[in-house]
């Protein structure tokens, strides 16, 4: 014992030995590893979730702070019966579908192009990544200035190129505002999708392609039977992640349109915010976010079921 620095736990004596031996078993160690994080998550995540569920089945109106009667599902029924909610829902569905499809498609096309260039395009990868690092608020500011109806560069460019003969409105135009919002969102989210697709492409073994070429498979068939299956997991990640993030889009709406003009860009998150903080209907707001969270969850499960078949895991 005096000679070697290391003492095996099995040879240790007394309490120290008992403790050391316990620390060799997963069952005893696990709480020490995952415990702190889970405890914090429980306190800071599960508690607010439960709390807002509690709020959602009560009337919480800050204008009448001391009267919070239990109303059961009334808040849920109210918003499910209100026209504004369905407009917001429709806007959100359009926004999410366009945004997720555009992010996945552009990300895939960019990644395929970068992959073809191989080492020669390496210098461009960090540049592509830049929009991803930008806060949504700054993203909103950048695009608000680009879209500006009097001095914006988008108008400047389109008029210079002769597409339009005079400056157009974008964010204050009901038929364009939602698409302008989608574009600002896609701009920030494409980089991450590009990198995810690119790293997946680079992980596909090259000999698969060589073998396919020996079998005289043409470009489309190689893409269809080697590239696409190799990208399945990246697709799953991009679709699930982007759906979750885009459904929650709030900062951009706050900066760019405040839900307008009219209700053209009122997404569900913005609607919830307005009901909660401007109309001070806390219970009502909480009930909406509950339904949105559950809907997102079902959507995520759906993607996983479709794209992640057990035989591949």
């Amino acid at each position: 014992m005096q000679t070697s620095k290391w003492v095996k736990p099995s040879e240790m004596m007394g309490v120290r030995g008992w403790l050391a031996r316990r620390l060799q078993t997963d069952k005893w160690v696990a709480p020490l590893f995952v415990g702190p994080a889970l405890l914090l998550m429980l306190l800071l995540n599960i508690y607010p979730i439960l709390h807002s569920f509690y709020v959602s089945v009560h009337v919480y109106n800050l204008k009448r702070p001391h009267r919070n009667p239990y109303v059961g599902l009334e808040n849920y029924l109210t918003f499910l019966g209100s026209e504004e909610f369905y407009i917001a829902l429709e806007n959100t569905v359009t926004f999410v579908m366009l945004a997720v499809a555009a992010v996945a498609l552009l990300g895939l096309v960019f990644a395929l192009a970068l992959n073809e260039l191989g080492r020669g395009a390496r210098w461009s990868i960090p540049l592509v990544l830049i929009p991803w690092a930008v806060p949504y608020v700054a993203n909103g500011l950048i695009w608000e200035w680009i879209y500006h109806s009097d001095f914006g560069v988008l108008n400047g460019l389109l008029v210079t190129l002769g597409v339009f003969d005079k400056y157009q409105t974008w964010l204050s135009n009901p038929s364009r505002a939602l698409y302008a919002l989608v574009n600002a969102y896609v701009w920030k989210e494409v980089p991450l999708a590009t990198i995810l697709f690119l790293t997946s492409l680079q992980a596909i073994p090259q000999d698969l392609y060589s073998a396919a070429r020996l079998d005289q498979a043409n470009a489309w068939n190689r893409f269809r039977h080697i590239t696409l299956p190799g990208l399945k997991l990246a697709f799953l990640l991009v679709l699930v992640y982007e759906s979750i993030v885009s459904i929650k889009t709030f900062d951009l709406v706050y900066i760019l349109t405040e839900g307008g003009p009219g209700d053209a860009t009122t997404l569900v998150s913005w609607y919830t915010y307005i009901e909660t903080f401007r109309n001070l209907q806390f219970g009502y707001g909480a009930s909406i976010s509950y339904v949105i969270a559950v809907a997102t969850f079902i959507l995520a499960i759906g993607y996983i079921k479709i794209l992640y078949r057990p035989e591949e895991s």
Binding site: A30, I46, S52, V55, K248, F250, T272, G285, A293, A300
Partner: peptide, 26 residues
Amino acid sequence: LRFAGKQYLFYTVLASRIVPEVSLIV
């Protein structure tokens, strides 16, 4: 590490991100 309910806990941690921030603010 191997411990009971590991997968379940892991997915719960990930799933907690689905809740919109707007509803966590209050």
